[in-house]
Design a protein around this nucleic acid. Structure first.
Length: 803
RNA sequence: GCCGGGGUGGCGGAAUGGUAGACGCUACGGACUUAAAAUCCGUUGGGCUAAGCGCCCGUGAGGGUUCAAGUCCCUCUCCCGGCACCA
């Protein structure tokens, strides 16, 4: 009996699959298609981590199953290779990022291949490949052409350590996401993408896709839609107006003052009327020093300054009210000005208490002297003129109607989502393909001149002024205007890492096309992606950005549907054995290479799937890995228990059908752990039985194959079952045959189990009762009692209620 | 604060309202062996126990619905994730 030699077997089959191009996606469009997508990695210098294979194995399992079910499967892989680590390394070593990237990609690829994933490597993409980013630039130019890209002076988050502008999303707890340094506010001229223009569709279209609920919720949350009204307040004795956004127009009679953001333009336009200007300017300066995070952080205790010399008029009652400046009002949301209703808004209430401002109750039901009353379900309008006695919902409708009729306001929807800061002052990214001409302004580089390549440089250090390192390469920057031929300068900002990953899945459909980002036929055949699995950490950024780009490409006719991903699922993290996040600094990193070496790729794959609930975080366990290896050893030894047979034996028939059903369904529902448990149970049954026939073992191998492809192929071949295992059909089950005729059920007395009886499924209640009463222990428990009620659920339970 | 998800043995985790703890790990016992490893067989929630079956308790806490609740309802609590001065 030969021993299970995982190293030899795995090497052998990887070579065979590679040589036969087993998993190369065919052009056979007569078959139904299945596009399985996993997030492509950033090829870091650390190499693969045991967290990587978890989602990859999951969709590899599904892909392998789908192929055996007759689908034409596209399951590709690539590299999200622009990014800071390679650039930081370049700064230190002066080695070009592309050199490091190439090495890392090579290592990653070899590691992935050693795990036996059924990727179609002929479609590999690399975001740093000029043939790829040519099309990233092309998409940007389309966005620019449609006025969805614009340059704007924006207060941005600035990391003084990385010398880079950060998107809001990259700031974590007031620090830089990468280095943790304290983030400051700086004003920079940035390229922005108008994702906000798609906010409504990004929310609404979630109804038409199959994403796990928490992903949808997080996206809705992030976009932050709120309905209300814009209301116009005039400023006394001027022509200026202050427009505010409010979700509670019903409380307008309770607006006792207004607050504007320190950046609000009216402070400039009406500066000559403001009598305490120095005080205001000082407050503005203070506010500017704080990052947005700090402004939020210091929410305990409100600060502000009253604007002397200006009064606003409440449009509903013509009362004069004061206007304040406070940094709790953000210029970046709504209009940068609010009406303050301290009786019914917690922040306004706190501010009013701090500065001793009047509080008026306009919704009865609480005690506005004690706290703001924000309930909207109950409560009647009071002190509100024509709104009195209405409930909140009705009052909202009435006042909005009134505002519209009197030209004082309009219904309005606002979003928390902000436009996407698309510029990075960095070297290692896609150059933004625009040229700035004194005469013509921003001019796109003509499409036939794409891609705009990165110049070779000596020094990758960003400049202290915050310009990209590219700004120092004068011969690259200085160019001619494509429109007028005059002197012009290239944009030196590059794109963020999110750019390349916003459309990579499209490129897989036609990875080598140099006429278009992909042919229309291929896009139409393969898209949308049928199943996309990725990390929860990408829910609000990557997922939203790529949906935005896809919708845009849909609008300009590049793709034929509005949503890129039909289905989205998410996996949990794999933690170190000490239950902490795996990291070099904690010294708890498990290297997959070592696991593959010692236990084999099949064991690693199986363990990754068996480790626990796929959607939850879970600690690594070396003992658990051994358990999976032990199982594969047991599988290997099954061949010594085989006997001939073309049909399932009576001993195992029901078990076989049950297992096929269970495994087939569990693989589809991210329940890999219980699918494997079912295969283990079957194996245990066979060991107890002492034998298994060929028909049974064939089915077993096919069911196990998606998880452990090497050992199953090897055994299939050794046993001369014919052809390659991956070419077989996925087994079917017969629902009727999953049902066992004789089954053991519990007998309960008053809901407590008192015995167990073996019944036939079609036994009548009388027969079952006879069996139950015949049970010694049941009979004992019934002694001296009166039977009140009996419940018999065939195949489940026999419950006798006694007194 | 708001919105999600969750709390089940020593551990990872299973359980369409119907015998809680499948499967794996750990630990222990037995077989095999000169011995060990490996393997195979068994035990492994807690307590009581006359050792014979059995009985009691047990799914974060407390109530409730039901013949029957880990599962449904109410109240509370703790943990994880997201959002958060968003008007």
């Amino acid at each position: 009996m030969s021993k299970y030699n995982h190293q030899a077997i795995e090497k052998k089959w990887q070579a065979i699959w590679d040589e036969k191009q087993t998993f190369r996606t065919s052009d056979d469009r007569s078959k139904p298609k299945f596009f399985a997508l996993v997030e492509f990695p950033y090829p870091s210098g650390e190499g693969l981590h045991v967290g990587h294979p978890r989602p990859y194995t999951a969709l590899d399992v599904v892909s392998r199953k789908r192929r055996m079910e007759g689908y034409n499967v596209l399951f590709p892989m690539g590299w999200d290779a622009f990014g800071l680590p390679a650039e930081n390394y370049a700064i230190k070593t002066k080695i070009h990022p592309s050199v490091v990237t190439e090495q890392n990609v090579k290592r990653f690829k070899q590691q992935l291949q050693s795990l036996g994933f059924s990727f179609d490597w002929s479609r590999e993409v690399d975001t740093t490949d000029p043939n790829y980013f040519k099309w990233t630039q092309w998409i940007f130019l389309k966005l620019f052409e449609k006025n969805l890209a614009y340059k704007s002076e924006m207060p941005i988050n600035w990391c003084p350590a990385c010398k880079i502008g950060l998107a809001n999303e990259e700031v974590v707890d007031g620090g830089c996401e990468r280095c943790g340094a304290h983030v400051e506010t700086r004003v920079k001229n940035q390229w922005m993408l108008k994702i906000t223009e798609y906010a409504e569709r990004l929310i609404n279209d979630l109804d038409d896709v199959d994403y796990i609920e928490r992903v949808k919720i997080q996206q809705r949350n992030w976009i932050g839609r709120s309905e209300g009204a814009d209301v116009t307040f005039s400023i006394k004795d001027t022509d200026e107006k202050l427009i505010v956004f409010t979700t509670r127009p019903d409380t307008l009679f309770g607006a006792t003052y207004m607050v504007i953001s320190p950046e609000h333009p009216v402070l400039k336009t009406l500066s000559d009327r403001i009598t305490n200007l120095p005080e205001i300017k000082e407050y503005q300066a203070e506010a500017q020093k704080k990052s947005e995070f700090e402004r939020a952080e210091l929410s305990q205790g409100k600060t502000g300054v009253k604007i002397e010399g200006l009064k606003a008029i409440n449009p509903v009652n013509n009362e004069e009210i004061t206007i304040w400046v406070s940094d709790y009002v953000l210029m970046s949301y709504g209009t940068g000005a609010i009406m303050a209703v301290p009786g019914h808004d917690e922040r306004d209430w706190e501010f009013a208490k701090t500065f001793n401002l009047p509080i008026i109750e306009v919704v009865a039901g609480g005690d506005v002297d004690q706290e703001a009353y924000t309930q909207t379900e109950t409560g009647k309008m009071v002190n509100s003129g024509f709104l009195n006695d209405m409930d909140v919902e009705q009052a909202k409708k009435e006042i909005t109607k009134w505002l519209e009729e009197n030209n004082l306001g309009t219904p309005k929807v606002n979003y928390k989502l902000r436009d996407w800061v698309f510029s990075r002052q960095r070297y290692w990214g896609e150059p933004i393909p625009l040229v700035n001409c004194e005469k013509c302004g921003w001019v796109p580089v003509p499409v036939d001149e794409l891609p705009v390549l990165l110049p070779q440089v000596e020094n990758y250090e960003p400049t202290d002024t915050g310009e990209s390192p590219l700004a120092n390469i004068r011969e690259w920057v200085e160019t001619t205007c494509p429109t007028c031929g005059g002197p012009a300068e290239r944009e030196t900002d590059t794109m963020p890492q999110w750019a390349g990953s916003s459309w990579y899945f499209m490129r897989y459909t036609d990875a080598h096309n140099d006429e278009a980002l992909a042919s229309k036929e291929n896009l139409d055949y393969w898209l949308p992606v049928d199943w996309y699995n990725g990390g929860m950490e990408h829910t609000t950024l990557h997922l939203l950005y790529s949906r935005f780009w896809y919708k845009f490409l849909y609008d300009i006719g590049v793709v034929s549907g509005p949503e890129p991903y039909q289905k989205r699922t998410s996996h949990g993290m794999i933690l170190g054995e000490n239950n902490e996040k795996m990291s070099k600094s904690r010294g708890n990193v498990v290297n997959p290479d070592e696991v593959v070496e010692e236990y084999g790729a099949d064991t690693l794959r199986m363990y990754e799937m068996f480790i626990g609930d796929f959607e939850k975080s879970v600690p690594w366990s070396t003992d658990g890995v051994r358990g999976c290896k032990r199982f594969l050893d047991r599988v290997w030894r099954l061949k010594d228990m085989l006997k001939p047979g073309d049909e399932y034996s009576s001993d195992l028939e029901a078990k076989m059908h049950q297992t096929i059903k269970k495994v087939s369904s569990d693989y589809e529902h991210l329940k890999f752990n219980t699918a494997i448990a079912a295969l283990m149970t079957l194996t245990n049954d066979v060991y107890h039985l002492g034998s298994m026939n060929h028909a049974e073992f064939k089915t077993f191998l096919i069911l196990l194959n998606p998880v452990a492809p090497h050992i199953t192929e090897e055994m299939w071949e050794n046993l001369n079952f014919g052809g390659m295992l991956n070419e077989q059909n996925w087994p079917r089950w017969d629902e009727e045959k999953t049902i066992e005729q004789t089954i053991s059920i519990g007998v309960q007395i008053n809901g407590r189990v008192r015995g167990e009886i073996s019944v036939n499924l079609d036994d009548s209640q009388e027969v079952a009762k006879e069996k139950a009463l015949a049970n010694e222990n049941v009979a004992k428990s019934l002694e001296g009692k009166t039977i009140v009620k009996e419940i018999y659920v065939p195949g489940r339970i026999y419950n006798i209620v006694v007194k």
